[in-house]
């Protein structure tokens, strides 16, 4: 049973590889978009405009109560009902982006709250305001202290991307499921997918360690 599974998987390696590449592609695009959007949300959160701050915190808290699968369905079925028609892949990446942007804004805010106030006050005293204060004074230490959390979020994005199988995005779990359904080799195909996800996550962890080592050396 299992040797046959491995043989079938080897024959179907192109399908599995294409699923893996799709997962990697989705995760990278979603991570970049969510990172940018998360930064924008974060800068609004610390803008000290009370109304914006309160609204955003409510929205972020709400987002943190929604299961990703429900959110994914809401985007997939919801966008067309407000007149926006997009493909499955775009809907999936949009859902991953919006969902994770809220988490990223929150983790940046956590890093910001833990920051000693003196540095920011000194920045004010030296005439840094608005955009320049954010980019030159606030962001460098906040980003540095949140590197490990970014790694965790990246792993979360990779894992969440498997939910896109429900809207027929042809990522790794979809590929494994197709092979399983066609050749009836469930054990080999899903274990193979699991090992590939593991590899991706170990890669992210190694990447985080490398970035931290570089940051430590540059200090």
């Amino acid at each position: 049973m299992i040797p046959r599974g491995i043989a079938v998987l080897w024959e179907q390696r192109d399908a599995m590889l294409s699923g893996l590449l799709t997962t990697i592609g989705i995760a990278i695009v979603a991570a970049i978009c969510a990172g940018v959007l998360g930064l924008v949300l974060f800068s609004l959160l610390i803008s000290r405009v009370r109304a914006i701050e309160v609204t955003l915190i409510r929205l972020i808290d709400l987002m943190r109560c929604v299961p990703f699968m429900l959110f994914c369905y809401m985007i997939y079925y919801g966008l067309p009902s407000v007149g926006i028609v997009v493909g499955n892949l775009t809907a999936g990446i949009t859902a991953l982006t919006l969902y994770n942007a809220a988490y990223i804004a929150e983790l940046l805010r956590g890093g910001y709250e833990a920051l000693p106030r003196e540095g920011i006050e000194a920045g004010h005293a030296f005439g840094f305001h608005g955009w320049r204060l954010l980019v030159r004074i606030i962001l460098p230490p906040v980003l540095l202290s949140t590197i490990p959390m970014f790694g965790n979020q990246m792993i979360q994005i990779i894992k969440d991307s498997s939910f896109l199988v429900i809207i027929a995005v042809q990522e790794l779990t979809f590929a494994a499921n197709e092979i399983q359904a066609t050749y009836y080799v469930p054990f080999a195909s899903f274990v193979c997918a699991m090992l590939l996800y593991w590899l991706l996550c170990l890669g992210v962890e190694a990447g985080v360690r490398a970035v931290l080592a570089v940051a430590e050396r540059r200090r």
Binding site: S162, T173, Q180, P186
Partner: peptide, 19 residues
Amino acid sequence: VSLLRATPSVTLVLLVYFA
């Protein structure tokens, strides 16, 4: 623990149910 933490629940549930 390392493997399970890296595995998406969707993939794992398919494995458990079908394999």
